[in-house]
């Protein structure tokens, strides 16, 4: 093939007046697929407190605590977003389907304490 310098010129000039491919984040919003593994969601009604999610969590980020009495159980899910690696293994491990993930990825905060959330 014949070689010459500056072969990309035409290609680059074609894009001069086209819309940029980059997004001015955070001014413009990112498009996140609904399948994206973001922050998890918890539905306490179905939870039986089996702790399978806690056992399988690779980052020890999730914990399920019983805030009710021994007879009248009421569960709460605590998640440390600073530890969570968003693998969603807990969602797979849950037999009752009370955990699910959402495409929420904007979770940054200024303090470590604020990253410990109750779901």
């Amino acid at each position: 093939m014949k070689r010459s310098p500056g072969r990309i010129a035409g290609f680059a000039l074609k894009h001069l007046l086209k819309k940029p491919a980059t997004i001015a984040y955070p001014a413009a919003k990112l498009e996140i697929e609904p399948h994206y593994r973001g922050k998890i969601q918890y539905n306490a009604d179905d939870c039986i407190g089996c702790n399978l999610c806690v056992r399988d969590c690779p980052a020890s980020a999730i914990s399920i605590v019983n805030v009710g009495t021994k007879e009248e159980k009421k569960f709460e899910c605590h998640l440390n977003l600073g530890h969570c690696i968003f693998c969603a293994q807990c969602v797979d491990s849950c037999r009752k389907g009370c955990l699910s993930f959402t495409p929420n990825i904007e979770l940054a905060d200024m303090s470590r304490e604020a990253l410990k959330v109750k779901l």
Binding site: M1, K2, R3, S4, P5, G6, R7, I8, F11
Partner: peptide, 14 residues
């Protein structure tokens, strides 16, 4: 395909 062609024909790259 364009990148292949570019890699083969651009002098400074080669």
């Amino acid at each position: 395909k364009y990148y292949i062609q570019l890699a083969l024909s651009e002098t400074t790259l080669a």
